[in-house]
Write a protein that binds this DNA or RNA. Sequence first.
DNA 1: AAATGACCTGAATCCAACA
DNA 2: ATGTTGGATTCAGGTCATT
Lengths: 380, 380
Amino acid sequence: MGMGVIETTKKRAQAVETAVELPRELPVGQILDGDCIAAMKRLPTASVDLVFADPPYNLQLGGDLNRPDGSHVDAVTDDWDRFDSFQTYDAFTKAWLAEAKRVLKPDGALWVIGSYHNIFRVGAILQDLGFWILNDVVWRKANPMPNFRGTRFTNAHETLIWASQGEKAKYHFNYRAMKTLNDELQMRSDWVLPICGGQERLKEGGTKVHPTQKPEALLYRVLLSTTERGDVVLDPFFGTGTTGAVAKRLGRQWIGCERDSIYRGAALKRIEKELPLDESALTTMQAGRSAPKVAFGALVENGYITPGTQLFDKQRRWLATVRADGSLMCGKQAGSIHGLGKDLQGAPSCNGWTFWHYEVDGDVKPIDAARQVYLLAVED
Amino acid sequence: MGMGVIETTKKRAQAVETAVELPRELPVGQILDGDCIAAMKRLPTASVDLVFADPPYNLQLGGDLNRPDGSHVDAVTDDWDRFDSFQTYDAFTKAWLAEAKRVLKPDGALWVIGSYHNIFRVGAILQDLGFWILNDVVWRKANPMPNFRGTRFTNAHETLIWASQGEKAKYHFNYRAMKTLNDELQMRSDWVLPICGGQERLKEGGTKVHPTQKPEALLYRVLLSTTERGDVVLDPFFGTGTTGAVAKRLGRQWIGCERDSIYRGAALKRIEKELPLDESALTTMQAGRSAPKVAFGALVENGYITPGTQLFDKQRRWLATVRADGSLMCGKQAGSIHGLGKDLQGAPSCNGWTFWHYEVDGDVKPIDAARQVYLLAVED
DNA sequence: AAATGACCTGAATCCAACA
DNA sequence: ATGTTGGATTCAGGTCATT
């Protein structure tokens, strides 16, 4: 697979050098120096599982922004400069998003965080590039900075976008882990988390090392929800390495890009100290579909449900008989627990495990109860 | 001031006709028929104080969706939400936003609501047109529809953008009213409100009249925060007239655009029944005050206590009127439920929840009773 | 009457592994 | 590619009938 780098004659010599320094193996556990676009160009196509990006929010803070012709952008006051700077920001955004898309595996995903200053541009551009938005997630800050002048609403949130490679692309979502994390309710698109402060906030001589250090809890949720253990996570705007620290803790591999040597030093020191969680802690709740599947026939086979047992729906509209092969019969109709339930109701689908019930010791229980008992017995 | 219409010789005759039917006076209290872009072109430049827009979201839904119990989800599949491509949607968005900008006064403002399907494109385009984003506001739905297949995070919010005419433009923000409404805390950029249902939801023969009717509490907060009494509010996507109904209630003037005659009919009927709040209820807090603990304003906003309601102490020594922002007025004195109670009694402190009473169905109850009802409804 | 429970619904880009 | 099949999947609030 090619590197996707546009090779001009000028750049070719450099590319050869790079090939010596960075062979095909991914530079996991490393912070790549320099501009993130150039750094990403040195990574192989379709090689990382997740990109998490916290790009500069505007031109004033993003000192690495230049016009396409290379000239530097400074004052952003009048209308012309505003227009010019939006254009410049868009070009920069398009460039790094395109590289991120190339580097991602087909079933990889992208997270970007931003505020109203930049997130609308970022969102529109990633849609234009073919990314498919899966959710926008609101980080609701538990303790935001107040609006001191009383001129607007307290800016109390930031927005994250989660996107796959395209409309039909696969992606990973640990639904069950999120539901468990959220007290057995589906995790919503609004996350209430405190801002980064206290012991977690990196400081040097009393002043914060990085102006926009993100809370680890935010990365924890991002990585736990959309990566698996061992996955490679790329952060093009690594800063002080929150992504790397949480990735290491959660048993994920990481790659960073960062042009500021002070941030790089702080990040490496920080990640060095981080301890990975141990095996047992990293085992999360599994979704039903990756849990061992149980055929209804196995319950019959093993005597948990006897052939001839009468099953019925909760309203007792239909009565079916269990046959020796685990199929059901109701009148002249027969089929699997799911298929028969579907046909009888004329529904598009049916979960037979919760639809069919049976009597046991005078109680009415869904047949799923028998499956639970069976699973407990088999697990040992 | 000109009409801003590009006058070709063909259109001139029509323009004269229009001038007869729609003279310089704004068509306040009217719903303009037809496409909103064409309708807005008939309005004078710099004539309205606020635009609130709930444009099509371009949902791009796939096949059918069923709940786990097999029931069918009634999706938004209306023609008005279908666009060929992002390009088509962008062109449409740019056209109506440009008209909105022309029609707005120099110190006017724009609100747009959307979801991740469209809001990034809308936000980027309005920035390109020179609008200056003041806040993005998140409507956190108290009761969103779950993600039935467990494939993503529950899509539990929508996003509003509030923008002025430009970076240097003036705009209106009723900081004090918002702070009072939010229990003496600055109003944040995330608003928790239930979706529109129950009695508020317009129905005809048991089915909803409009698939995406917005809750009145949302418009209440928008109009109270960024308009003054008598201001003209334009809604280019009027639908069933939530904007008009709340505007009338709050003593604002309104203009709507709507091409569907069924929606227009329902909106006119609805607004007809709406009663404006009286003078005293509409006077909101202008000066600072300290106190309460639970937001009395939330009860007002959500209709548990109507602005204009008369409150009194148990001995009926004082009579106070509830105002739109949740403050009380008694004679010339005004304040929060606690502060005013304290001042009137000359006491060091006062628990407004137990001090103030109101009549409901002939019974006299402390306002704390309304809080209890509200808490039961809101609690999670 | 108050409490309980069944049933319905809401701006939704909603499956995966086979043959 | 495309169709088929197995089987996994929901929260809050309102309405209305029943206890």
